[in-house]
Structures are given as structure tokens and as C-alpha cells.
């Protein structure tokens, strides 16, 4: 029964998919030492009648930073939001074909509780969205939902998360003031702190720096480097320098298809697909 669908790791690269994917297999092979945590397998995705993703297959490694790049509307955010099923919130969306497995479990399966899934797969949004509560309450929100009431534990988590998000020194004196009083970059880091407070396995970041100034951006990028030690990170960006700076692997999407997936260095220095080359060298998109 389990053999009906072959386990994720050994899937041969010679799949009847887009030719570009052949390269992706090569890319994955290069980092074969790492363990796959997310396995996206031939996914078709629809918003109502319009198809947003065409037969996307991708394997993401644990404790690595993977960047999704591509022009606007290429489906990179859609794929990201599939990973913790945030797309469920939008009417008329569906995964029509294929599967997404995290640690081998199909996240669309009937046994999966989407609430539990989201506890394990955190998310940081494009627009920072701290709740209009105090900084402290923002960070403990997730834990309190899980029923943690122990004050000392909460305090510890707040400090740990804020340090983790490199925000502790800036806000330690005003933990009980509103999170909305922070600057844009601080707010975004607060959201990251909020996400790591529940200790997820994976953190999804949907263009986390698009609304930030360069200084804040570099802070968040540094943070991503730090976080990589502990979490698997998937980041959507259309800033190519950012992808080059902070990711280990990069996937290039175009018109809802995965064009190329490889080590970041390969994608930027020696892309296999001419479209990828055109995009990373700034000729379109």
C-alpha cells in the first residue's frame, strides 16, 4: 500500500515533466546530503477556473533557506501559501492534482488537522501585521492559544524569541507597549519573533522585506541567516540580490510553472535555462 506512491526521496529525476525540471533534479542532487522536509509533487492549483500552478514538483531540504523567485503573478506566493494551507481561506481554491508532503505526510490528507499544521509551519507576511496588542501579548499569542499559562515560561519564550529575532535590545524596556508603535522593520521582526515563538519546523516568508527600507531589510536578512540554524525557511522575494544573499537554493517560477530549481549559486552564475538567465540578469520581469 505505501508502495503505491513511491517514497519521496527516491523519485527519479526523469519524470515526464517540463524539460526544465531536469536541471532541478541536478540541483537537488548537489545537496543530496541534506534531508528533504517538504516534497511538492506534481501540484496543479486553481483559483476558481484559472490555474495558478502547473505541475510543480520540488523538494526542499531541512534547515536550508529556499528562495522562490519570479515575476509577479508567477505563482510563487501561491505555492508558499499552499505549504501551510493558507489558501484554504480563499474561496474556490483547490489543489487539483499532486500532493504536498511535509515530513512524508500529505498535508491535504484527511488525517491532517490544519490547525496543527499551521503550528508547525509558521508564516511571516508581506505586510507586517502585528496585532494591536502589546509586544509581549503578540509573541505569547501562539503559546497562549496552546494553553500555556505559566508566566515564567512565557517570559522566557518572549525573551528567547525576541533575541532570536534580533529585537530584544530594542524593545526590552517596552514589552508592554503596543506592537503598532514599532517602526516598519521592527514590526516585521516582531512578526518573525511571533512566528518562532511557537517553535515551528518551517517558517514561510512571503516577501518579508518588500515594505522595508534597506537598513531594515539587511537586518531581516541577517536574521534569516541566524534562523537557518534552527528552522527550515522558505522565502518568496522578487528582489534577486536578496535571494542571492540569503538563500541556499533557489527556485525560479514563470507563468505558474517551475522553470528551474538549483543551488542559488548555480541559478545566479550558471543557469541552465535561458529564461532563468534572462530573468536573473534583469532582462525581463
Amino acid at each position: 500500500m505505501p508502495a503505491a506512491i513511491s517514497p519521496t526521496m527516491e523519485r527519479p529525476s526523469a519524470q515526464p515533466t517540463a524539460p526544465a525540471l531536469a536541471v532541478s533534479a541536478a540541483g537537488t542532487a548537489a545537496s543530496a546530503a541534506a534531508r528533504t522536509i517538504i516534497d511538492i509533487d506534481h501540484v496543479d492549483f486553481f483559483y476558481g477556473p484559472s490555474q495558478a500552478l502547473h505541475d510543480v514538483s520540488l523538494k526542499l531540504d531541512e534547515k536550508k533557506v529556499t528562495a522562490f523567485i519570479g515575476p509577479s503573478g508567477c505563482g510563487k506566493s501561491t505555492l508558499l501559501r499552499c505549504l501551510n494551507r493558507m489558501n484554504d481561506l480563499i474561496d474556490g481554491t483547490r489543489v487539483a492534482k499532486g500532493s504536498i508532503k511535509i515530513r512524508g505526510v500529505d498535508i491535504h490528507g484527511p488525517q491532517v488537522d490544519v490547525i496543527e499544521l499551521r503550528k508547525r509551519v509558521g508564516m511571516v507576511f508581506q505586510k507586517s501585521n502585528p496585532f494591536p496588542k502589546s509586544i509581549y501579548d503578540n509573541i505569547t499569542y501562539g503559546l497562549r492559544l496552546q494553553g500555556v499559562k505559566d508566566k515564567s515560561r512565557l517570559d522566557a519564550v518572549v525573551e528567547k524569541s525576541l533575541r532570536g529575532a534580533a529585537l530584544w535590545d530594542e524593545v526590552k524596556d517596552r514589552l508592554h507597549t503596543s506592537g503598532l508603535g514599532l517602526s516598519g522593520g521592527q514590526q516585521q521582526r516582531l512578526c518573525i519573533a511571533r512566528a518562532i515563538a511557537v517553535e515551528p519546523d518551517i517558517i514561510l516568508m512571503d516577501e518579508p522585506c518588500s515594505a522595508l527600507d534597506p537598513i531594515s531589510t539587511s537586518k531581516v536578512e541577517e536574521l534569516i541567516h541566524e534562523l537557518k540554524k534552527q528552522f527550515t525557511i522558505v522565502i518568496v522575494t522578487h528582489n534577486m540580490q536578496q535571494a542571492a544573499r540569503c538563500s541556499d537554493q533557489t527556485a525560479f517560477f514563470y507563468l505558474g510553472r517551475l522553470v528551474e530549481f538549483a543551488d542559488t549559486r548555480t541559478i545566479f552564475m550558471n543557469p541552465a535555462n535561458p529564461q532563468t538567465e534572462a530573468y536573473v540578469s534583469g532582462r525581463f520581469g
Binding site: F125, N129, F131
Partner: peptide, 9 residues
């Protein structure tokens, strides 16, 4: 979204 992404029902 922020709340749901943290695993709130």
C-alpha cells in the same frame, strides 16, 4: 491571517 498562521482555530 497572522493569527491563523500561528495555529489558532
Amino acid at each position: 491571517e497572522g493569527s491563523l498562521a500561528l495555529g489558532a482555530t
